[in-house]
Amino acid sequence: MSVLPILDVGLAFLVVGLAAWTVAARNLFASVVGYVAYGLLLALVWIRLYAPDVALTEAAVGGGVTGVLLITAGKRLGALEKDEAGATPALALKIVAGALALFVAGALAWVVVTLPDPAPTLAPAAAAAADGPGAGLGNPITAVLISYRSFDTMLEKVVLILAVIGVWSVGADSAWGAAPAPLGRPQPAGAMVLLAQILAPIGALIGVHIFWVGADAPGGAFQGGALLAAMWMAAMMARLTEPPRIDARWLRLALVAGPAVFLVIGFAGLGLAGDFFAFPPAFAKPLILFIETFMVLSIAVALPLLVAGPPNGRSAR
């Protein structure tokens, strides 16, 4: 008999229980904390689904960056909640919503359990193409992201940039160009400073490793970039460094670097390999790593800016 199901069942119950808590909690902050805990657990679930790449993404984004974003928001809004609570939904609405949710969940569960067997899959195609368009990348997910579905990946980075501009755009007119508000308090405690001093360089090293190893093993540009972003945020929370002015030229260039380099090389593909976003086989792998390097840069810059929020204060230099 295997004990694996015990772990899996326990994990599933825990995840679903935390989700239920997130929805059911009366207190806003308690709900936010429940969600953050839930995000951490998901990393475990992804390992059980044999998806270490996704687990890494979930750990970096769900456990780290999103946690900071939501905890900050929850704490700031917690003070407001009493004034706002206002309309509690009527019982009838609760019943209707509950029935709808139950129906959708039930239908989904039924469909998922009865997915066709054997499952249709592109794994053989991806494996067969590994040395052609896959460019000899040992990690098929990286190959899918940068080669087969390059268009998704490039545009998703544009989405990230639009989100940054969207976040900036909710600021005050007079603040435009200035830096976002500091992430930490004016005089951080010694323990926090020390922690950031320890974590930042080590984390940067780990971030580069996870990006680099992503060509052949689980990891990749997004995961590595997210870790670098987290380290920058740690340094900002400990006030070792401050958020940059949003009109800084280097910042703008770093933001667009990833998609821009991808775009330029994608265009060049027409001349070099006969198609947009095609890579000449001889140097596909170095080209992909070159693109990914800039992706890492863009992600590492974009995520902290998304968390830091709109520019704050006055813009005069």
């Binding site: 360089p201 080590i202 090293l205 780990i206 580069v208 490793h209 680099w212 190893v213 460094t241």
Partner: peptide, 27 residues
């Protein structure tokens, strides 16, 4: 972290140099 692979050594050195820069800056 990365294990010993000869071809990754340059990247490792560059990453370590970056880490040194960060650590000298902050500490």
């Amino acid at each position: 972290i990365a294990g010993w692979t000869a071809k990754d050594v340059p990247v490792g050195l560059a990453a370590a140099a970056g880490a040194v820069w960060i650590s000298l800056k902050f500490l």
